[in-house]
């Protein structure tokens, strides 16, 4: 493989890294509170608000059921509002984050539901406020599960980011399509797939390791 192609591969990798890193970071920051809200406002939970919970759940489901490629195109006006442009790596970050937020929300909600109701009851018996139950019991006890969810989200984002080529976002997937497929360079396609496999493997291993370290169950 020529040095030019290698440099192209490196640039694409960095683009993927930026897209996944930024959108993953945003999705984490918004998705965790969203998951908390979904969990604690559920009927029978510490801040039960059944009607609100139902509506929030519907919104989350609506975003999750929209295919990413359609979501990306559909929210172009919003993307332009935020980044000032509708093409390029930065423009790809917005739809990626929007798609990942409800995904993280559901994964975090699931992790929080795993926390034994007895722990919440014990905290209530100690005189804990709902906020204290969230910060001292729910989040610390479900942290390994939340981390597993974030790992799943990052791996999914790596896959989604391959579609970012559609808005000129670049990245490894885009490189594979343009060079490997359209210019019929199987060695480029092979390299792209190989790098993606190693990248995903690395993310998964780091996530697993961290989750295991934090889990004392």
């Amino acid at each position: 493989m020529s040095p030019e192609l290698l440099s192209l591969l490196w640039d694409s990798f960095i683009e993927t890294l930026v897209m996944v890193g930024l959108s993953g970071g945003i999705a984490t920051l918004i998705g965790i509170p969203l998951g908390l809200l979904l969990a604690v406002t559920a009927p029978g939970h510490i801040l039960a608000r059944p009607a609100f919970n139902k509506i929030l759940g519907l919104v989350v489901n609506a975003v999750r059921s929209t295919p990413f490629i359609i979501l990306m195109v559909a929210i172009i006006p919003f993307t332009r509002l935020i980044t000032g442009t509708s093409i390029g790596t930065a423009a790809a970050v917005v739809p990626l984050a929007i798609a990942a937020i409800p995904f993280v929300g559901r994964l975090v909600e699931g992790a929080l539901r795993e926390v034994d109701g007895g722990l919440i009851e014990a905290a209530q018996a100690m005189g804990a406020t709902p906020m204290q139950i969230i910060t001292k019991v729910l989040v610390p006890e479900s942290l390994p599960g939340i981390l597993n969810g974030l790992t799943i989200m990052l791996v999914s984002l790596i896959g989604f980011s391959a579609m970012a080529g559609a808005v000129g976002g670049g990245g490894l997937g885009d490189l594979g399509i343009r060079y490997g497929y359209q210019r019929f360079m199987p060695e480029v396609m092979g390299m792209v797939v190989l790098v993606l496999i190693v990248f995903v493997q690395l993310v998964q291993s780091c996530g697993d390791w961290l989750s295991r370290r934090l889990n004392h169950r």
């Binding site: 034994d116 007895g118 722990l119 009851e121 014990a122 018996a125 019991v137 610390p140 006890e141 942290l143 390994p144 934090l214 889990n215 004392h216 169950r217």
Partner: peptide, 14 residues
Amino acid sequence: IGMIFQHFNLLANR
């Protein structure tokens, strides 16, 4: 009012 439980209800990560 302290309380103890059948299944202890200790925080696993503390």
